[in-house]
């Protein structure tokens, strides 16, 4: 893909993410997590192999959730953060798995 097109698309993804994220998410926490998700997506746009970062972010988010559980107060607000983080852990992991599956399928087709 053309580099200029990649730049335009990256800006569109990130700006569009803010607008779409604001429209669909209930809290700022989710918006931040969504932007992280889009950040990785932009990386994948530049190099396909970067989809492994989804797994890394999933590992970081679940660790953060557990750390919050250990040190955070047991207020509803913190539980909300933890729930949102674990939800996004799931999405990061799921996206990583989807890209891995695409890898497997495309590899099989190439072999054929």
């Amino acid at each position: 893909m053309n580099t200029y097109l990649k730049i335009v698309l990256s800006i569109c993804i990130l700006l569009g993410g803010v607008v779409v994220g604001h429209a669909i998410f209930v809290s700022v926490t989710e918006l931040i997590l969504f932007m992280m998700y889009l950040g990785v997506s932009v990386c994948v746009l530049w190099k396909r192999g970067f989809y492994k970062l989804y797994f890394l972010f999933a590992a970081i988010l679940i660790s953060l959730s557990v750390i919050l559980y250990i040190i955070g107060p047991t207020t509803i607000r913190y539980i909300h953060y933890i729930d949102k983080e674990s939800m996004w852990t799931y999405y990061f992991f799921a996206t990583g798995v989807v890209f891995s599956l695409i890898d497997i399928v495309t590899e099989r087709k190439t072999k054929k």
Partner: peptide, 10 residues
């Protein structure tokens, strides 16, 4: 499970 995904080369 997550780390395996990160390191996996399929």
């Amino acid at each position: 499970i997550f780390i395996a995904g990160f390191l996996n080369k399929n």
